[in-house]
Design a protein around this nucleic acid. Structure first.
Lengths: 255, 255
DNA sequence: CGCCTTCTTGAAGGATCTCAAGAAGGGTGG
DNA sequence: CCACCCTTCTTGAGATCCTTCAAGAAGGCG
């Protein structure tokens, strides 16, 4: 424990600050969180379904998927997490893992003990609030995924997912030509969109031919953002990615 | 404001207490929350997408759906809420409504000002914690819905939904023959399972013929719970409906 | 260079949708 | 209490999107 260099937690702090107002002291409390760093190979679970955990996993690099599964063994990715995300922040108040977490590509995580998170949250109520707020964004994304998987066809689904990841990785709304790193296999895209890998392959070809998106092995190129967003019916509002400074919230001490 | 009789908030308090430990004072703070009661007719929105709200809606009776929509106008229900639920509790920390809320059957709601909720949460950190914890259960349910809609066929999907609602309305795991009130139309079931009303109809007939579930206009009868749960691959763990007393959490002052 | 993963392509099958129309049910006013 | 209307349920037939199965090509890594 404790073998952390401070910059590790900066992306997470930035994420918090994009939606919540935090004092210098509170920010420092985040940066001072202890943790154990760990490298996870692609396709390896680092949290199993039902685990009773005593720490939360901060993603320092790489991509992580939250997995559900039906009894046929068909896997479903219910969320994709990137650098700065904490896929199981909710475990602070609910330690029984409700889904498995798996690295989609090689990833670095930081396991931060609940006890440290709780101490920080107890000392600074604004942190509790900020943690809770971040969890609600996660829930909003999940609700969007239900719509995506439930009410859109293959082309729209893939387009929507690409737009979501593009926006999140790009940190803010986009326009024109966009290129962003996104190292997932077509099989993983299939798990995320509830399609088969075969159909994802055909869908990606169709998007490529239509000059809408070129999904490579390591990165995605989107020649015309607006066109792809139109196909995917993508409206970035639910991501709360770019809350204007004057709209960032702080409830504690404003009552 | 304030025209509330206390018993209104008891179901919500019971829900909180099933997962969190609260002192007498904290419980009283919940029961003392002010609010404006309102009756909502079936199929009426009472929160619109994007609304900036200054209150949260407590469900006193009836069924409420959280709706998403694609641009074809195809609606998708992303969550169903029952008595004692607060579909937009997260609005306390994130006031921009991320989904529309609509009554599925005639419902009574209580609009409780954020300012009162924030005051209670600021005074009693254990309440913040309990609110946050309740929101995480919502997120777990959403993740299950992604799996349901994405990786199960029509029969399994409907079976899973019926089991979920049966468990929640019945307050705890079930066995043997179960009957519970559940006043939804087949079109609403279709919106929740991402099927068409026509196919829901055929699926319900098939479940009825197989003696698995009899879905009526006002209630559902499940002759053999275990059989239906097997079809729907239903595992109630994610609902956190029956956390054993010794596992209920209280973080504040335990650090 | 060789192996293993990932991508690609084809053909056939199936679950679900769409469209259309009629039957049943529940509520309301005369 | 009946007649009427509107919603909901039911049924049929054809269309379609996506899956399944299978096999070969391409790509990355030791």
């Amino acid at each position: 424990m404790g073998n952390v260099s401070k910059p590790d937690l900066q992306p997470f702090l930035d994420r918090l600050k994009s939606r919540s107002v935090l004092t210098g002291e509170e920010q420092q409390a985040i940066l001072d969180l202890p943790g154990r760093r760990e490298i996870v190979q692609a396709n390896r679970d680092f949290i199993a379904l039902g685990d009773r955990v005593d720490h939360a996993c901060f993603i320092l690099s790489g991509l992580v998927g939250r997995f559900g599964e039906n009894s046929d063994g068909k896997r479903q990715i219910t969320a994709i997490y990137i650098t700065g995300d904490v896929p199981d922040l909710q475990s602070v108040v609910q330690p029984a893992a409700s889904s498995a977490l798996q690295a989609l590509s090689i990833a670095t995580i930081l396991r931060v003990p609940h006890i440290a998170l709780r101490a920080a949250a107890a000392r600074y109520p604004a942190l509790t609030e900020a943690f809770w707020r971040d969890c609600t964004v996660d829930a909003d994304v999940l609700a969007q995924w239900v719509v995506n998987v439930g009410r859109r066809d293959a082309r729209e689904r893939v387009a929507h997912l690409l737009c979501e990841m593009g926006t999140r990785l790009h940190a803010g709304p986009a326009a024109g030509e966009i290129v962003f790193p996104f190292a997932v296999t077509q099989a993983q895209l299939a798990d995320a969109t509830a399609l088969t890998n075969v159909h994802v392959n055909r869908t990606l070809q169709s998007l490529r031919r239509a000059q809408l998106a070129d999904v490579g092995r390591q990165a995605v190129r989107i020649p015309n953002w607006d066109a792809l967003a139109a196909v995917g019916e993508f409206d970035p509002a639910y991501l709360q990615a770019d809350v204007r400074p004057e709209e960032r919230l702080r409830i504690v001490e404003t009552v």
